[in-house]
Design a protein around this nucleic acid. Sequence first.
DNA 1: GTGAGATACATCGGCTGATGAAGTATTTCA
DNA 2: TGAAATACTTCATCAGCCGATGTATCTCAC
Lengths: 111, 111
Amino acid sequence: MAISADILRGHTDAIILARLMDGDSYGYEINKNVSQRAEGAYGFKEATLYTAFKRLEQNGLISSYWGEEGPGARRRYYAITQAGIAQLAADRQEWAETKRVLDALIMDKEG
Amino acid sequence: MAISADILRGHTDAIILARLMDGDSYGYEINKNVSQRAEGAYGFKEATLYTAFKRLEQNGLISSYWGEEGPGARRRYYAITQAGIAQLAADRQEWAETKRVLDALIMDKEG
DNA sequence: GTGAGATACATCGGCTGATGAAGTATTTCA
DNA sequence: TGAAATACTTCATCAGCCGATGTATCTCAC
């Protein structure tokens, strides 16, 4: 099942930060990585992705640099910052809490 | 921990539908119910709530009627429709899938 | 050697849902 | 008497997502 944009809204930044925990990467690669992990259920639209990079860099959560010139299209690499690592920790906690709360609110259990 | 609006965005309708599965209710009551179940971690803003009621009714997922006049402020009651019940089932499935996918994308496990 | 498709990045404008603020009205209780 | 709770409504604004469009390079089948 594909997951709608509104459901994922707000998780974009956390997803990118989490992917950068495995090492520096660039847009195209991050997105392929995300699609694979999501087993096709989700992938960023390009506009969403690059908008997010800008937002994250402006907020000091990632930094960027151009990859060394080789064959192929140029790549801009991103690296997570200390602030980004801290933010991701907070995001993960919030996600854990969100699961708890939404399960109580929409799933078929008694609270 | 309070959960941010962007994280909850897109879940508003499902939350309301789920609350109406326990029987007809009105805005103020639904919101108190939600806040209690969320243990204070989330509650609708009034504008969000009433905007959602309108959207849901326009989409045929809920119907509404004025409560019988008694003492106190007037209340508009909402009831979930058959289409609403079907939508909620779909929303619950999507939520289950979202948990799976987001865990794979942002949590600290190997996928 | 050429055209299709993959790789790779970037920007603009429109859409949608959330919400702060403001307003209306009634009841309860100190 | 007035503050606080109950209860509903609308408007303007904001932020994030994304369709569309554009740029440029490389690979591979034909």
